[in-house]
Simulated scan of single mutants.
Amino acid sequence: MRPLVVTATFDVATQAGLDRLRERWFPPERNQLAAHLTLFHALPGEALDDVCAALDRACAGAAPRAEVSGVRSLGRGAALVLDSPGLVRVRAGLAAEFASRLTRQDGQGFRPHVTVQNFVTPEVARSTVEELGRDLVPWTVQVSGLAVHRYLGGPWELLRESRFTAV
């Protein structure tokens, strides 16, 4: 069974703005997804019911706030850095629940970010990081929920979204 991807979701205006950045900077032929903040890259597909229940429990409280606070190089791309102690706590709680099911990548530290460019040369990435960093004015975004997707070898299929009960 194909793996599950868990992401944080944003309010409509934030999502639209992040999508515009991704459309501007991501190579169009490689841009198969909307802008996203991945919490887990590959949970076991057969754990769908457990994952959905855990996301519902995690969303039973207030939505964490996040600040887009910087730009990070991905070597062959660029990402917006999000500072969100609340989201880090939510993710840590989920990681504890999924501990026996985490891949090596998902078991490593969590550094919240939204990739706006990937699959470019290091030179193009450096230029993008420089331009994004020069123009960046930190802004606050609202995390609205958590979503689980099925990985389909490139694109994802949205299976379920849980919304935080208080914004």
Rank of each mutant, 00 (worst) to 15 (best):
W139M: 12
G45S: 11
Q117N: 12
V12I: 05
V6E: 03
G93W: 00
V137K: 12
G77K: 07
V120E: 08
V51N: 09
T140W: 13
V143E: 02
L55R: 08
R57V: 07
E67I: 11
E123T: 15
A35R: 07
D135E: 14
S84I: 00
S84Q: 00
L39W: 00
F40S: 02
R104C: 02
A63T: 08
Q105Y: 10
A54S: 15
G45R: 10
C52R: 15
E157P: 06
P122I: 12
F26T: 03
N118W: 10
D50V: 15
G107K: 00
R2G: 02
T115P: 08
W25P: 06
R126K: 12
E46A: 14
F119A: 15
W156C: 10
L33R: 12
G107T: 00
D106N: 06
G145I: 09
R91T: 03
E161C: 11
V90M: 04
V124T: 15
V137Y: 02
G75A: 07
R101L: 15
G93V: 01
S69P: 07
T7W: 00
P138T: 02
A13H: 05
D49N: 13
C59Q: 09
N118C: 12
L158T: 11
A79T: 09
D83R: 01
L43Y: 01
R104D: 07
T165H: 10
R57L: 14
L159Y: 10
Y151C: 11
T7E: 12
L80F: 03
W156I: 04
C59W: 08
A78Y: 04
L146G: 01
Q15E: 14
G70Y: 03
G133Q: 05
V51H: 09
A34T: 14
D50F: 15
G86H: 01
A34P: 13
L82W: 00
Q15K: 08
A78K: 06
V148N: 03
V124F: 12
V5L: 11
G153R: 13
P28W: 09
V148P: 05
E130W: 11
D56P: 11
L158D: 10
V6M: 02
F119N: 13
V141K: 05
V167I: 08
L55I: 12
G70T: 06
A42N: 08
G145T: 10
V129M: 09
E23N: 07
L102K: 01
P44V: 06
L80D: 04
A95L: 02
V12N: 03
T103H: 05
L132Q: 10
V143S: 05
A95M: 02
C52H: 10
W139Q: 11
A54F: 02
T38R: 09
E29L: 15
N118Y: 13
A8P: 01
L132K: 10
Y151K: 14
P85T: 04
A34Y: 12
V116E: 04
S144R: 15
V129H: 06
A42E: 11
A16V: 04
L102N: 01
S100C: 03
V116F: 02
V129E: 10
